[in-house]
Amino acid sequence: MQWWQLVVGVALAGALALLAWRAARMRRRNVEALLSKHGWSRVPEDPTLVDRWRGAPFGQGTNPRATNVISGAYRGHAVLAFDYSYERRHPAGGTVRDVYAVFVVRLPRAVPSLELTPQGLADRGRRLLGQADVTVGDEEFDRAFRIRCHDAGAAALLRPELRRRLLQGGRRPYRFVGDAVLTWELGPIDKYALNATWIEQVFDVLVDLAGSLPPDVDRPRVT
């Protein structure tokens, strides 16, 4: 390697490090601005959240933690966001920690348990093999989401208004459980906070879902 190549390499590494530092600072500022704007509070960790809900991304790996916990009110609903992480063995040896940003909005009442996950290639292949899924008769929605529920009344939540808002919310998982609706993304909250309004956008979807619930669905009989 010639001397000028070394100089260019060092300069490039320095520039990338500076950009990463500026991005991290912007993420922190954006989160702090939202906390101040909405009067939300934040605590470093809350162990009670680790096993409050079942299903992905919870209940996997070892040494689970709920950190960077944000709570407060948004558009008249109690909201919660936190980083959920756990350790798992890496195929090459050792362990790695997977992190998910989890968002929760309290519902006005308890509803039957229902989980929606974006349809993938494996789901489409299973349907081609004749393995039945729960469907609602809406071709666009059934093509976009896989429905999992244990209560026949749960699918009754998926009225047209709620389906429309779910489709508008983007390809992400959702779970209605008890008096809460959840969604989650791979990676910590701060990873997405470079977009100053991203956290609000996620809460907007969940609050809209809470407001789109039909009024005549019974409490859950199976959880």
Rank of each mutant, 00 (worst) to 15 (best):
V99R: 11
E139H: 11
A110N: 03
R124P: 06
D133K: 00
R124Y: 13
R126D: 09
E139P: 00
E115R: 15
L107D: 05
T135C: 02
D138Y: 05
H90C: 10
R127W: 08
A122W: 08
P91V: 07
L121N: 05
V104L: 06
G125D: 06
P112Q: 04
L107K: 09
S113T: 11
P118E: 02
D123G: 15
V99A: 07
S113Y: 07
A122Q: 08
G125P: 00
R124Q: 10
R127D: 07
L116G: 05
A101H: 10
V99S: 02
A92T: 11
A101V: 12
R88K: 11
S113I: 02
A92Y: 08
G125C: 09
P108G: 10
L114H: 08
Q119F: 12
T135M: 02
V104N: 09
T135R: 07
Y86F: 15
G94E: 06
D133G: 03
G93Q: 14
A101W: 12
T95P: 01
V102E: 01
V105E: 00
L121Y: 10
Q131T: 08
G137I: 12
A122Y: 05
R127P: 09
G120H: 13
R109C: 05
P118G: 01
V99F: 05
A122C: 03
D138L: 12
D123Y: 11
G137V: 12
G130Y: 01
A92R: 13
R106S: 12
R88G: 09
L129F: 05
L129E: 04
G93Y: 08
F141P: 00
S113L: 07
V111I: 10
V136T: 14
A132Q: 10
L107W: 08
F103A: 01
L129R: 13
A132W: 04
R106T: 09
L128S: 02
Q119M: 13
L114M: 12
T117D: 09
G137M: 14
G94N: 09
F141M: 02
R124W: 15
T117G: 04
G137P: 01
R127L: 09
G93N: 14
P118L: 01
V134R: 11
V99H: 04
G125R: 13
V134M: 06
P118H: 04
L116Y: 00
L121A: 12
L128C: 00
Q131H: 05
G130M: 02
G93H: 11
R106L: 10
L107Y: 04
P91I: 06
D138H: 09
R127E: 13
D138P: 13
Q131P: 01
V104Q: 09
P91A: 07
R124H: 11
T135A: 04
L116D: 03
Q119R: 14
G93S: 14
G130I: 01
V105F: 01
A110F: 00
L121F: 11
P108L: 12
V136R: 01
R97V: 08
G93M: 13
A110M: 08
